[in-house]
Write a protein that binds this DNA or RNA. Structure first.
Length: 461
RNA sequence: GGCCGGGUGGCAGAGUGGCCAUGCUGCGGACUGCAAAUCCGCCUACGUCGGUUCGAUUCCGGCCCCGGCCUCCA
């Protein structure tokens, strides 16, 4: 089964063919580091992490580039509001971003270039565009001339007329055409700026991704990803900048994830329903957030609900229960990703179907009778989990998770063990009333007991 | 208004021209001192109206409804 991906350029699912059989280049638009990551930011990070994991099993070499946007007017505004320096904000926010997504089992990309470290590459690309007549300088700005590119609008399926008609912002007087967009703009002394042929200034919104993807992956590369809202204008403009500057085709396959809603409503600051990854990590383990995110196909809109997250945790309880029951058995080395999981992922990252197969593997493990079958089933389940970035924890660690900040209220593990011992004594004495009372008492404190063939185990509710 | 994507059982969510998604929940059975977990089984589906077809949730068309984007946005 070849890898199939939905390509926004063609609007259909295509067989993925890398430019080189031995190497795949993947570029995904990363965060603008002005605030903590919210759950909508996490979606592409998780989706493309699954794609990255899959590509690494299919090709000898993969280069995954995800940028950090650390020059942006939102950052500038944040700095002037808080009085902190821009660097303080971007450094701290970048660290928080890394911490948050690591908790979601997201692998680091191979390269994570920062925009401010690549200003020279951006200036060079802008100069190329000027030389080739695709850009013009005006009043300290440099603008991309949209009419200079014949098939501008191909990715988003827009005509020039539509874009001009749809332009809602006031058209700046120095624009030759309302659709032209900024490549470089002047900075006042209080704003970050770099010396350029057009005076001290800073890059426009789109040029950094063009410059950095070209630098690290070449003028043409395989896959460019991001959220659906970036199709226009960001990705459309990236294509325009890169193709016109280099004269080569840009990314061949464009993959976009759908948007995220919260409890049926658009997530927005005005509605006050923006969920930060950090807040969610205090409500549920990172793997529950990740599994929940993967339970809807990446191309579909996702409606994030508290109930859905609770369900995701229940599902993982089941998976980890199966693994806990075979905790003392070894994992066979070199077991491949089960074929049905791989087939689901190769079919345009059908993670909901892959998760359905994960449940079947779990049932297989629960039903296995011989030790050999159990080892095989356990190894297969873990290999499948790895491909999705799930089941990376020790089962006991999973069941001991409790919300952050609840340490003070949480019963200590020593106290739990003592209660279990007392209950065992009561049961041996056939004093079931006392045993049930202990169990009830623990349950009231959020600790659930289960009597199994291997003794009594517990988990936090 | 323009462009795009959807409408599946109590909920979430895949998929397919004729047979099972899967999970959560609920119900019954096995197991258990009782539970829980697990296993076995069960229930409730494909917006609407037409068309094509031996047969459509699946293909085609109309209609209704929902969502996203249209230079802040993952």
């Amino acid at each position: 089964m070849p890898l199939m991906l939905h390509n926004t350029l063609s609007r259909r699912k295509e067989v993925f063919k890398p430019l080189s059989p031995s190497h795949v280049g993947l570029y995904v638009c990363g965060p603008t580091v002005y605030d903590r990551a919210h759950i909508g930011n996490a979606r592409p990070v998780i989706v493309f992490d699954v794609l990255y994991r899959l590509l690494r099993t299919l090709y000898p070499s993969v280069t995954y580039v995800r940028n950090i946007t650390d020059v942006d007017d939102k950052i500038n505004r944040r700095a002037s509001e808080s009085g902190e320096s821009i660097e303080t904000i971007t450094t701290r926010t970048t660290r928080l971003f890394h911490d948050d997504i690591a908790a979601l089992n997201v692998l680091p990309p191979d390269l994570e270039p920062r925009a401010t470290a690549h200003i020279d590459a951006m200036i060079a690309m802008i100069e190329q565009l000027l030389t080739k007549g695709h850009a013009y300088a005006a009043e300290g700005h440099v603008l991309f001339s949209v009419p200079s590119m014949a098939d501008y609008g191909r990715l988003s399926g827009r005509s020039m007329e539509e874009m001009i008609a749809g332009a809602r912002v006031e058209v700046a007087p120095y624009k030759k055409n309302p659709a032209d967009f900024v490549l470089w703009k002047p900075s006042t002394p209080d704003l970050p700026g770099w010396e350029s042929p057009w005076g001290r200034g800073r890059p426009g919104w789109h040029i950094e991704c063009s410059a950095m993807s070209t630098k690290y992956l070449g003028a043409s590369f395989d896959i460019h990803g991001g959220g659906q809202d970036l199709v226009f204008p960001h990705h459309e403009n990236e294509i325009a900048q890169s193709c016109c500057a280099t004269g080569a085709p840009f990314a061949h396959t464009w993959v976009h994830n759908g948007h995220l809603m919260v409890e049926g409503e658009k997530m927005s600051k005005s509605l006050g329903n923006v969920l930060s990854v950090r807040d969610l990590l205090e409500q549920a383990p990172g793997e529950a957030i990740r599994l929940y995110m993967l339970s809807t196909h990446y191309h579909q809109p996702f409606d994030w609900t508290a109930e859905g997250l609770r369900q995701a945790r229940s599902i993982l309880d089941r998976l980890y229960t199966a693994l806990r029951n075979v905790a003392d058995l070894p994992v066979r080395a070199g077991v491949r990703i089960p074929i049905e999981i791989r087939a689901a992922l190769e079919d345009d990252l059908n993670t909901p179907l892959a998760l359905a197969h994960l449940h079947e593997l779990t049932a297989d493990l629960n039903r296995a009778e011989t030790e050999g079958d159990k080892i095989w089933a356990k190894s297969s389940l873990l290999a499948a989990g790895e491909s999705l970035g799930l089941l990376r924890l020790d089962p006991e660690a999973w069941f001991r998770w409790h919300p952050a900040g609840a340490e003070a209220n949480a019963l200590s593990e020593d106290a739990i063990d003592a209660a279990i011992a007392a209950r065992r004594a009561a049961r041996e004495a056939k004093d079931f009333a006392a045993a049930d009372s202990i169990r009830k008492d623990l349950a009231d404190k959020g600790v659930l007991l289960e009597d199994g063939p291997r003794g009594t185990t517990w988990k936090r509710a």
